[in-house]
Design a protein around this nucleic acid. Sequence first.
DNA 1: ACTAGCCCCTGGGAGC
DNA 2: TGCTCCCAGGGGCTAG
Length: 290
Amino acid sequence: MPELPEVETIVNDLKKKVIGRKIKSVWFDAPKLIKKPKPVIFVKEMRGLKIENIKRRAKNILIYLSAGKLLLVHQKMTGHLLYGQWRVQNKKPISSLRGVMQEKVNNYIHIIFYLDNGWQLALSDLRKFAKVILGSQREIENLAELKKLGPEPLEKGFNFRKFQQALCGKKGKIKQVLMDQSVISGIGNIYSDEILWLAKIHPFRPVNQLKNLELKKIFHFIKEVLKKAVKLRGTSISDFRDPEGKSGHYATRLYVYRREGEKCPRCKNAIKRLKMGGRSAHFCPHCQKL
DNA sequence: ACTAGCCCCTGGGAGC
DNA sequence: TGCTCCCAGGGGCTAG
């Protein structure tokens, strides 16, 4: 599901709701989502910890806890961190009281953190790709998957020079490179399509053949698209939801993503979809020449 | 040391 | 209506 803007939205919302809260207990029904430590230990270790801070790194959510602990949550394709109140009945959470009501994301809750104010932080995930890892702050921050991440595109220090450096020596198609988390953090399939359409660059162009001017355009639209999407609280194509179960508003702004066959908003030619490494690239063959 | 491809899952939508 | 096939915003692992 989520790329940078969606994760950013979730983190900002959760900060307001759960910082300072204590975790009273943990419920789960999908042990495989808990990568470390073993689920039984995980539950025991989480109990009594206080949520001190929440940060985003790439598409990861980092929940800083008391006792120097850190919880990493990656939502992958269909994961959602939700804030609400549910009852567990027949070993499945059901919607109740306040929070997310009658949303389909409710049906897939697999982990619930019970907070000391009566509310809950829950992880729902239809496809069960999501993962949580608990460890010491040091341990988590040193995980290879975090250490290898490229720069954050919305950070002030991320200027054109840093962008060039990140791409330096890279091979392959520009779309794939933009989505490579070790090059730049947080861009996925939706926003890479949108960025490249705005920059008028064909997604299959080899990155090492792009001219300086073209790179500048891409750089410019990375910032512009991501900022706008954060402002609009992300894109809800199928099931992205914020912690209260509400949709984001960027979907209406999408120019090419999932618009195969529709008219290009610029030139009115038909938008095309091509497979690239198991994923779809959407683009306008007229505006974005190979 | 690379990269393409498979895989982890479940459901929605299109086409027949 | 129901079956089959393809699709899905991520990313780790493996085989070549």
